[in-house]
């Protein structure tokens, strides 16, 4: 079983990866350090998962080498579950990529990372409503301190493909 960690550059993807795998890799918060992808392993509910830390990308239309690598990895792992990592202070922007991945037919779990920053900036997100409308698990995390990571892992087996017509209907009837 495979998990792909995907998201924009600088959303703390590598931090989530480190927390999930405990692997000895490093992270930085300026764009472009995650060009080579990293693989680690973790066990969720007795099942071993291979986790790939996919290079940061903004959309599924590649603009540079690193983004191309990201899409190649996505294309090579059709049976994977994707953890889509978002910056909780910039949810709209991150959702574009999440939506694209959902459209590709991957089961997705959304991690709203840097949740503490969002709280500090008085950004309130209605998690329950977001989960319902998207039809995917949405977990707030603070990867740098490890908050929310075990819940995130716990949601991976529950992720399912989303029916796009239903999704559209749900969004429009909000």
């Amino acid at each position: 079983m495979k998990i792909l960690l995907m998201g924009h550059p600088n959303v703390g993807k590598s931090a989530v990866f480190n927390r999930l795998t405990g692997a000895n890799i490093t992270e930085s918060n300026y764009p472009g350090t995650t060009v080579d992808y990293t693989v680690g392993y973790t066990i969720i509910g007795g099942q071993e998962y291979e986790i790939i830390d996919v290079p940061g990308t903004f959309s599924t239309e590649p603009k540079d080498e690193a983004e191309q690598v990201a899409l190649d990895i996505l294309a090579d792992n059709e049976d994977a579950t994707v953890i889509s990592v978002l910056d909780a202070t910039k949810v709209e922007r991150g959702l574009y990529l999440s939506l694209e991945i959902i459209e590709e037919g991957f089961p997705v779990v959304i991690a709203l990372n840097m949740w503490d920053d969002a709280e500090k900036r008085n950004i309130h997100i209605d998690l329950e409503r977001l989960r319902k409308v998207l039809g995917v698990p949405v977990v707030p995390t603070v990867a740098i301190s490890g908050k929310g990571i075990s819940e995130l892992a716990g949601q991976v087996p529950r992720a399912e493909r989303v029916d796009l017509k239903e999704l559209k209907r749900r969004i429009e009837s909000l």
Partner: peptide, 27 residues
Amino acid sequence: MKFTTEERWKLIDRIARETIEYGGEET
């Protein structure tokens, strides 16, 4: 079925409006 770029942004806009509330930021 896939959405077009425009559709996608429209949907996201809708989601964001209904689920996210931005309070003022303190200096």
